[in-house]
Amino acid sequence: MSVRDAGAPVAGAVTIEVAGRDDLPAIVAILAADRLFGARDTTDPAAMPDYERAFDAIAADPRLTLYVARAGGEVVGTFQLVLFHALLRHGALIAIAEAVHVHPDARGLGIGRAMMDFAIAEARRRGAASLQLTSNKKRLDAHRFYERAGFERRHEGFKIDLDDRV
């Protein structure tokens, strides 16, 4: 990862695009670099088939899109956009930004903002009534970032882990 070497924000040079299977190792490396909760993801080659199966399932589902953010030709961020209809709000289409991650070496350079601006625009373009996301309570910097990006704290989330691998 050499994006930080530039030393200046790169938001103007960030491109957001649908992830390809060849982006998978870089995406997994970004996820594995997150150590806030220990080693939940790994770049161990033995785990790659799990990530490949998940990527294939995401790519096959028209309600799901996995994106990458590139700067200087490198994958520096990733997020998934999930769209579904709810009965609430007269059957509104709801968008969720999931698994939003920027490589630790590229944080503070405008990558996350470019990804969220894209997610908001894409959700709007696809007719979503709202875009929501969740963020772990320990991610205080992320919370401040999301608020600066226009998100409001409206709900209290709950979760139960059903798989001991996560």
Rank of each mutant, 00 (worst) to 15 (best):
45 P>F: 07
33 A>R: 10
88 L>T: 13
61 D>V: 07
124 R>A: 14
142 A>I: 08
147 E>V: 12
101 H>V: 08
98 E>W: 04
17 E>L: 09
159 K>Y: 09
149 A>P: 09
133 L>A: 04
28 V>H: 05
110 G>D: 03
157 G>W: 09
83 L>P: 01
13 A>N: 06
166 V>M: 13
138 K>A: 15
78 T>D: 03
138 K>H: 14
11 A>N: 00
72 G>Q: 09
40 R>M: 14
52 E>L: 12
150 G>V: 12
14 V>F: 01
81 L>V: 00
95 A>W: 08
81 L>S: 06
143 H>N: 11
82 V>T: 09
62 P>V: 10
57 A>M: 12
92 A>R: 15
129 A>E: 15
77 G>Y: 02
130 S>Q: 12
67 Y>I: 07
41 D>M: 11
1 M>Q: 09
97 A>W: 06
90 H>K: 12
166 V>Y: 12
94 I>E: 09
132 Q>L: 12
38 G>K: 07
91 G>F: 12
23 D>K: 07
134 T>E: 14
26 A>G: 06
6 A>M: 08
162 L>T: 02
164 D>A: 15
65 T>C: 10
59 A>F: 08
40 R>Q: 14
4 R>M: 01
32 A>K: 02
28 V>S: 03
136 N>Q: 13
94 I>T: 08
103 H>F: 03
136 N>P: 01
143 H>I: 10
79 F>I: 01
90 H>F: 09
120 I>R: 13
142 A>H: 09
67 Y>D: 05
130 S>M: 13
154 R>K: 15
32 A>R: 03
71 A>L: 05
10 V>C: 04
118 F>T: 05
129 A>K: 13
1 M>S: 14
51 Y>Q: 06
98 E>F: 05
77 G>V: 00
156 E>T: 15
166 V>E: 11
99 A>D: 15
117 D>P: 00
31 L>I: 04
115 M>E: 10
150 G>A: 11
139 R>F: 04
83 L>E: 15
143 H>L: 10
27 I>R: 04
118 F>R: 06
44 D>M: 01
34 D>M: 13
15 T>M: 06
156 E>W: 14
105 D>G: 02
127 G>L: 10
30 I>S: 01
77 G>N: 03
77 G>D: 03
13 A>S: 12
134 T>V: 10
125 R>F: 04
106 A>S: 11
139 R>H: 03
32 A>M: 10
157 G>A: 15
128 A>Y: 04
73 G>F: 02
128 A>G: 06
87 L>D: 09
60 A>V: 04
160 I>H: 11
118 F>I: 07
93 L>K: 06
113 R>K: 12
61 D>F: 03
69 A>Q: 07
104 P>R: 14
125 R>Y: 02
132 Q>T: 13
90 H>M: 09
112 G>I: 01
51 Y>E: 05
139 R>S: 04
59 A>S: 14
78 T>W: 01
17 E>I: 02
13 A>Y: 00
48 M>G: 08
19 A>Q: 03
83 L>C: 12
105 D>W: 00
64 L>W: 12
161 D>G: 07
1 M>K: 09
139 R>L: 13
156 E>V: 15
32 A>T: 12
84 F>G: 14
111 I>N: 06
118 F>E: 10
21 R>Q: 08
15 T>G: 11
146 Y>C: 07
14 V>E: 00
69 A>D: 04
66 L>N: 03
80 Q>Y: 02
43 T>Y: 11
78 T>A: 11
90 H>S: 14
